[in-house]
Design a protein around this nucleic acid. Sequence first.
DNA 1: GCGACAG
DNA 2: ATCTTGTCGC
Length: 232
Amino acid sequence: MKISSIHTWDMSPVEAIKLQNRLRDMVSAEDGPDEIQYVAGLDVSIKENRGIGAAVILDYPDLQPVETAIAKKDIAFPYVPGLLSFREAPVLIAALKKLSLTPDLVLVDGQGIAHPRRLGIAAHLGVLTGLPTIGCGKTRLYGKYEGPGPRRGDYSWLYAGSEIIGAVVRTKERTNPIFISVGNNISLDRAIRYILLCTTTYRLPEPIRIAHLTAGKESPGGSDWHANALML
DNA sequence: GCGACAG
DNA sequence: ATCTTGTCGC
């Protein structure tokens, strides 16, 4: 698939913050088309400044893998809370470009607008691709909340002052909830529903879980310890 | 000034 | 993210 190059990635943290403030108004929480056939999952693994980005596509609602793409890139930008996209988005975009299929929805490992400048990696990628995206974080970056109920499907709101910027969703009982937020072109309400529909027996949505395994599997000599069971 | 801080 | 064994709980 093609992706617009509105900007480059080689810049300082200060410039990165200015860019985020420039792109934040391009995010939309309006629902797009209703038909969803393909859901993509994105994740990155990094080993000694070498990043492996994985983009997997599962059919919906069956959640069976139908295409996988991997890209590798040297990671230049440091990890700075709030600037994750400048570190991980480049390799993810490289992986997305290799896909022959175009996803109808993209789940990203990280926050959407639940971010100090409302432009977490899922929102940033949503603006660049124009696709509906949802941010799925394993922990909180920004916002206040009270824990959701104990049952699968229970959720509570994530607030930035009085503004709702996301939801804390229990996808599995007796397990920590995940942080869901709008990336682009989707409403929070629908984002929560899709996340639950894409989550089966594990804490994380299948697309992201598969992308995580895919990104961590690749390595020269064969350094996959706990993730040998990628039997699909 | 002091914490908090996606992956 | 990464390092990375054994172990506690359902």
